[in-house]
Design a binder for these strands. Structure first.
Length: 281
DNA sequence: AGCTACTCCTGGTAGC
DNA sequence: TGCTACCAGGAGTAGC
């Protein structure tokens, strides 16, 4: 599933292909991709716009749209489970799972594909309204370990759902939460306020290192879904310590990796490295 | 505040 | 082989 590292990879590859291009044509094979706006309204808002920047916030891709030299709105995209972006010549057959196609002024098209139809590409006039509830970017300098340790101490929630909460820290998903918790030797069901400062710092480091290493390897690909916009798989899946490794030995202690359910999410851990929290009465 | 359950979707797969 | 039932899962929402 695309998480922060995968989205960052998509942004880096798509950006040089589309920045400076003007959107000339808009095709919407699956209208719900637009998040409630009609094809017609979306087309009016977007057609004729020049893409002046492409950037990432959490797991969102953002395209700045300008007309007459001024930004008038943004395309905000979320890949969810199976969403993909790529740029290709605007001829030849369209991918059967194409949900939105933006024809560019250089004869190519920016295509959003999504097998499961969960992904969204919305037009926004108010970015704050759409992205304002997101927590800090885990790789930014403003996200300090002191800030994180203090925030953890204030939460009486299990670590796993807390780290998946985009309002707490933005950009983590199921894979990287499991990996980071294992790296920090913390049990996913442990309550945040029970984590001692030293372990909280270790978790902070684990989150940052895991994400940075995954970006370096262009994200993780283990099913046929996530690919870079150039069609390459990422390679961070070869570094997984727990995710998808249930039944196999822990690379750190040799214990057996288990798969449990925490907050309706499949969760991978080594019970030997990540000691169970004391059960609350 | 924080938990569970449900919804959206489809392809893959386990079980028969 | 061919069928059905179930699963994965990010995030929004509702209900407790």
């Amino acid at each position: 599933m695309p998480e922060l590292p995968e989205v960052e990879t998509v942004v880096r590859i798509v950006r040089p292909e589309v920045v400076g291009r003007t959107i000339e044509g808009v095709r919407v094979p699956w209208e719900r991709t637009l998040g409630g706006r009609s094809r017609a309204a979306f087309g009016r808002a977007v057609r004729g716009s020049r893409i002046s920047a492409v950037w990432r916030r959490a797991k969102f891709l953002v395209f700045d749209l300008e007309r007459g030299g001024a930004v008038h709105g943004w395309l905000v995209a979320h890949l969810r489970m199976t969403g993909r972006f790529f740029v290709e010549p605007d001829d030849g057959p369209l991918d059967p799972y194409a949900r939105l196609v933006l024809g560019l002024d250089d004869g190519r098209r920016l295509v959003f594909c999504d097998v499961r139809k969960f992904g969204r590409v919305t037009y926004e006039e108010d970015l704050e309204e759409r992205l304002g509830d997101l927590g800090p970017e885990p790789l930014h300098d403003e996200f300090t370990s002191e800030l994180f340790v203090r925030a953890l101490r204030r939460k009486r929630r299990m670590l796993k759902p807390l780290l998946l909460d985009q309002g707490f820290v933005a950009g983590l998903g199921n894979i990287y939460v499991d990996e980071a918790l294992h790296a920090a030797r913390l049990h996913p069901e442990r309550s945040a306020d029970s984590v001692p400062p030293a372990a909280a710092h270790a978790l902070y480091d684990a989150i940052r290192k895991t994400l940075a290493a995954a970006i370096e390897r262009e994200g993780s690909s283990f099913d046929r879904f996530y690919r870079t916009p150039e069609g390459r798989p990422g390679s961070y899946q070869h570094q997984f310590r727990v995710y998808g490794r249930d039944g196999q030995p822990c690379r750190r202690c040799g214990g057996r990796i288990a798969k449990i359910v925490v907050g309706q999410r499949g969760t991978h851990l080594c019970r030997r490295c990540q000691r169970a929290p004391r059960r609350r009465a």
